[in-house]
């Protein structure tokens, strides 16, 4: 029987072959010094690499209590830190973008504008109903019409 390559011996070492293949390799190893030597090297390499990697594990911790609210806290903190300012900025932007349309809605279709002003001094102690409401309308031709409501 031909000798086995490193990959095959590695799989044999890791017990990853089926029973039949394991037996076949086992029989071969009984008579082949080269494969037995390779297998021993692979075995040593596996052991030493595992030991080396285990050095990276400084401690085997006790299983801590799982705090399930941690995620919710994290999400809340994320919302406060990032989502709220973002939402505020988006709101402001929307307000600025929609402003021209909002203004245009107030303008009547025929081009007339409506203005108001307090033109005389008022006594704050008197009810507002004691004063006449004077409506002054200026049409596009410049004609002025005044209407007083008592």
């Amino acid at each position: 029987m031909n000798c086995f390559n490193e990959e095959q011996l590695q799989q044999y070492l890791d017990n990853e072959y089926g029973q039949e293949e394991m037996e076949a390799i086992g029989h071969h190893l009984e008579t082949c010094l080269a494969c037995t030597k390779s297998l021993a090297q692979l075995h040593q390499r596996r052991m030493l690499l595992k030991q080396s990697l285990d050095l990276l594990v400084t401690k085997q911790p006790a299983i801590p209590q799982l705090i399930l609210s941690k995620k919710a806290d994290k999400q809340r903190r994320f919302a406060v830190r990032y989502l709220l300012p973002l939402a505020a900025a988006a709101g402001l932007l929307l307000l600025v973008l929609l402003q021209p349309w909002a203004d245009s809605d107030k303008t009547p279709d025929n081009g007339q504008t409506l203005q108001f002003a307090i033109s005389e001094e008022v006594d704050a102690n008197k009810p507002v109903t004691d004063y006449p409401l004077i409506i002054t309308v200026v049409d596009p031709d410049g004609n002025v019409t005044q209407t007083a409501i008592y």
Binding site: Q8, R45, R46, L49, S52
Partner: peptide
Amino acid sequence: IGKTLSRALKKLEKEL
């Protein structure tokens, strides 16, 4: 997996 693992272990050994 066998082939990839075999190469990877060899590579790590060499690197070390």
